[in-house]
Amino acid sequence: MSSTFVPMAETFAVETWWVQIIKGVIIALIGFTLIPAAVTVERKLLGRFQHRYGPNRAGPYGTLQAGADILKLLGKENFRPAASQGFLFYLAPILAVVAAVATFAIVPLGEVVTIFGQPVGLYGIDVGIGPLYVFALGSIAFYGLVLGGFASGSKYSYLGAMRAAAQLISYEVAMGLSLVGVIMITGDLSLVTMVEYQQEHLWFVLLQPVGFLIFVIAAMAETNRAPFDLVEADSEIVAGYMTEYGGGGFASFYAAEYLNMIIAGAIATTVFLGGWAIPFWPDAPAALGPFVVIFKTFLFVFFFVWIRATLPRLRYDQLMSFGWKILLPLATLNALITAVVVVAI
């Protein structure tokens, strides 16, 4: 293979191939470890918000409850409804979880450090298309939901999938536009470059407050979090696209959902909250990076849970008109004004 002709995964890598493989496994494991952590945080916090204890039996303070639930789900029998389409029914949860884990690879947990004499970037890959990679995998994950809903052969699943399709398309546009301002200021799509820019200058949450707000709101809708959880509104359509799933399939959808929430928080951290940077401590040791990113990410998780405990679910037409008539024009205006300011300065 000539050195001038390398696929994307090799173009931006600083490491040798075996380091990349080890790193990939470790980052996937980090992702899968954060899922039960987020589930536990959500259940405990929701309990507190609603004046109850939340899970408190398995392990100290109920911390092992999520792990026990996962074990229980994986041990259950895999069944499928008679009306479902076998291949697609089993493919859908796999698509959802694979896309979520692949998206997690782009989250920069830290800068390039030297481990045992090998340069290692503390991220899965640093692609030159940054947020576009997230959106591309997001549209793959979307097929997980739609196939799950369609292949189940159930009306509730079908309604959930249709809602998911409309909602994801609507809010993806606003989400993309909310990042345009940041991209114009940085002049680059790479997430690592964005963090480095914020280390040298200001955090983007101060430079792009409107973009930040739009991104967080759209991220809540993209990850089907309350108050935008019409896709799986329990009181109307049971559980939406995952109604007919049990055991491993349900666990996969559930895991993908929580991982998507973590990724939304992590991307918001990276793009708007300075990634692995610690304020007023410019030369913090690089090994702290991953912990800082995970801490900031869980601030977002806390915020998402807080919102879920506070706001009631929107009605469907409110959801659509909010996305198209408020968020989208606001994001466009934000991008326009940023463009003018960037050119003027």
Binding site: M8, I129, L132, A136, G138, S139, Y143, A165, I169
Partner: peptide, 22 residues
């Protein structure tokens, strides 16, 4: 080496146009 086109292909065609078909 056309990573931008690749991403646009997935986002626009697989993500938006095909969703309509589905």
């Amino acid at each position: 080496h056309s990573e931008f086109i690749a991403a646009a292909q997935v986002v626009v065609y697989a993500g938006a146009v095909m969703v309509l078909y589905v």
